[in-house]
Every structure is written in C-alpha cells, then in structure tokens.
Amino acid sequence: MMGGIGDFLIAPFLEFVFMQRALLGALMLSFSAAPVGVFLMLRRMSLTGDAMAHAILPGAAAGFLLFGLELVPMTLGGLVAGVVVALGAGAVSRLTVQKEDASMAAFYLISLAVGVVMVSMRGSSIDLMHVLFGTVLALNHDALTLIALVTGTTLITLAIFRRALIAECLDPLFLRSVSKLGSPVHFVFLGLVVINLVAGFQALGTLLSVGLMILPAAAARFWTQRVETMCVLAIGFGVVSSVSGLLLSYHAALPSGPAIILSAGLLYAVSVIAGTRGVLLTRLPRTSHRTA
C-alpha cells in the first residue's frame, strides 16, 4: 500500500524531468514570492499585486511580438512595463492629490489594454493563453536560472530592508520623521513585486503568478501575529501548494498553473475557517476567562 502512495506522490517527480523542473521552479517561487506577498498584504496592497500582474502584460507581449516565445525579450519587456507602471503610479500618488489605488488602477488598465491589443495583432488565442496562464511544465534551463536569480535577489533585499519595510508598514510617518528611506523603500519593494511577477509569469502566467504571492500570505495571516513567522508559514504554504498542485495537475490532467493556485486557494479556505485567528476559533463562545 505504501508503494501505492509513493507512486502517487513521488514517482511523477522521479520519472519525468519536466516535472522536476516544474517542481524546482515552483518551490523557488514559493521562497521568493510568498514573503513578498506577506508585506504586500500587510501594506494593504494585495490588489496592487494583481494590478501589477496585469501591468507587465504589454511588455511581455511586446517581447513576444518581436521575438516569439523567447525568455529574455519577454522577461525584459515585462520588467520594463512593470517598472514603468510602478514608478508612474507611485509618482502620481506622491506628487498629486490622487491616492495610489486610483493611480495604480489607471496605469494598469491602460497597460492591460495595450497588452491585449498587441497580442491580438500577432495571432492566436493560444499565444494569449500562454502569456496569461503560463506553462509551468515547459520551464527550461534559462527560465529556472531567471527564477533562481530573482529568488536570491528577493531574499537578500528582504533581509537588508526588513526593518525599514516593517517600519513603513507599521508607522510610515514615524519612518519619515527619522529617516529618508521611506520613499526609496517603497519603490524597492514595488521593484521586488515586479521581478517576482516577471519570474512567476514564465511558470504561472501573468494572472496566476500573483496567486502564489498573495494566497499563501493571506492564509498565513490566520495563524500568527508575528511578521517573521508569517513569512515562514507563507513559504511553507507555497511549497505545499506547489507540490500538491503539480501532483493534481499530473494525475487529473489539469493545467498546472491553475492547479497550483487552486491548491493555495484550498489552504486559504481551510485557514480562514480553522486558523487560530480564523472564523471558528474567534467566533466560538468563550466559556472561561482570566482574572486580569
């Protein structure tokens, strides 16, 4: 019987190189995107991640139009588009009365429309499907190298800016009163969001790469009150989602990207209900209390 379970859980990864690559890519993304997602969520910018995911589309599409399904041009294109939208939206919100949610929405909507128009100029809806939903099972060596670079950069940057990021989330006015890092750290952080989305869209596509960022983080929020623990938990949830999503995709012949995000969604649903800070435990009538 154990052999059966072993076959089910491990054999696909032992047997097929494409599954090994997919697993490696998804695991690296979990280590990188999930902690970024924690800070995105704590800054109440979860939807900004979604907006940025749309924003990189025209850049990726431009690379695709000019060079076909090639990693480097699509990545560079996505990077440029993401940075333009992040800087543009950030600048409008810092220099004018408009808040960042509105400027971000404006920039990403324009960006998304440009992207779809560009993809449609070239050809089929299959191409569009690839850009939007990725192909984790077709990750090649270059794509894995890119993801590894992004993961390394992200973890190092988070380690360096951790204190400033927490201060900026917790009390932005305080950080401004003691340091000039407030604005730069915001843009460094947006940069991390962009590179993680760009790394993720090879595997998961522009729409789903934000899922691996936000869902594990959102799930982790229901289990702990500590930022560090939350990051570790989010990574763990990302890892579990990646493995179970790939297995689900393999055994049930489902598209791999959505399968990974669905697994993360399931973990989120369980956390909402059963987490230590979730619905059940916080709504249960208390039968006892302390004296002070």
Binding site: I166, C169, L170, D171, L173, L175, R221, T224, R226, V227
Partner: peptide
Amino acid sequence: QSELDRSFPAQVRELVALGLWP
C-alpha cells in the same frame, strides 16, 4: 493624526523599539 496601522501584527516592544532607529 498618526498613520500608524494599529492592526499591524506587532508587539508593544517592537513598536517602542522603532525608537532605536536613529
């Protein structure tokens, strides 16, 4: 009018320790 996010998952000692920044 503090922009302090009181729902942020931080403990009192962490809030006070922000004062160590300078």
